Simulated scan of single mutants.
Amino acid sequence: MHIGSFRFAPPWWGVLITAVGVAILSALGVWQIERAHYKERLVAEHAAAERAGPQHLQLDVADVESGNGPRHGYRYIFVGHYDAAHQLLLSNQVEGTQTGYRVWTPLILDSGVRVMVDRGWVPKTGDRGAPRPNPKAPTGEMTVRGYWQGFPQPGLRFGADQQCNLAGWPRALNYPAPATVRCQYRAPVANGLLLLDPKAPGGFVRDWDEDAIGLRPWAHYVYASQWFLMAMIAVIILVVVNTRRRS
């Protein structure tokens, strides 16, 4: 290709490599823009939750079955009593350098619905064959405050992991799916966790990160511009390296 007094003649493999690189870099830039849009929605939802403040909520069976339960990121106040005899332990949870469990205790509401309350982290004690911890819980009617979130997810989940044939309590589970949590109880269970307020009694180590937003939208836009800039630089390099002045 001749452009004035210059000749642009890149090898086919150079064009191919550059095209593939530009496509990948541009795709990464578009992905970062999509993440920025998602974070913008998340910021708006978080702001709405902050404005709403703590809300008293009484769930019934119809709410649980229809999915009209608590909303992620909102603070709620429930009234009920703990069922400390049927607790779940989230396995392999690390605090500092020590391994332990997160204690999930059902809070039984007047409607019979169970709300799983994450009361915090407890250390794993004893040898490998030592019994699991079974922390006590306050008795009587309780007013429980906390922050609502979904059940924690593993990085990868392979196949169906529903385990309903476990014997004895407390039961230790490793990142159970919501269906696995529900099938431990012969009663409706709300789909999510109430992270017990750090100042509330009856809990353990609670260093909740209530900021689920992470990187703000502007940071994703910056990363997107970097990917697009790298794609542009790749094209510029192809042109500069393969352009020569005609004799």
Rank of each mutant, 00 (worst) to 15 (best):
Y221G: 01
M142W: 08
A52I: 01
M232E: 07
P133K: 05
S66M: 06
D211G: 09
P176V: 05
Y185R: 03
Y76R: 08
K136Y: 12
N174M: 13
V20P: 09
H46S: 07
T125S: 08
F78H: 06
I236N: 07
Q58F: 14
Q58M: 14
A62H: 12
A187W: 12
G192L: 05
I77A: 08
P54Y: 00
V239F: 12
M142A: 13
D209I: 14
A52R: 09
S247N: 14
E65K: 06
Q55F: 09
W208E: 11
L215Y: 02
T243F: 05
A187M: 13
P176L: 05
V61W: 05
D63L: 00
G140D: 04
G112R: 00
A167E: 10
W208L: 08
W31V: 02
G96V: 00
F228D: 04
G4N: 04
R102E: 08
V181K: 06
A137L: 03
Q184I: 13
L195R: 13
R128I: 00
G126A: 02
F204R: 04
R51N: 07
Q55L: 11
V103A: 09
T105H: 11
F228L: 06
T143K: 06
D63Q: 07
P217Y: 03
A172S: 13
H220V: 01
Q162V: 14
G126H: 02
A190M: 13
N68H: 07
S26T: 15
N242H: 09
F228E: 01
S111C: 05
R132E: 12
D83K: 07
W208T: 10
R119S: 07
R145F: 13
G214D: 02
R35P: 07
V64Q: 08
D127P: 05
I77L: 14
V122G: 10
G126F: 07
L42I: 02
T97Y: 04
L107D: 03
D207R: 14
K136Q: 13
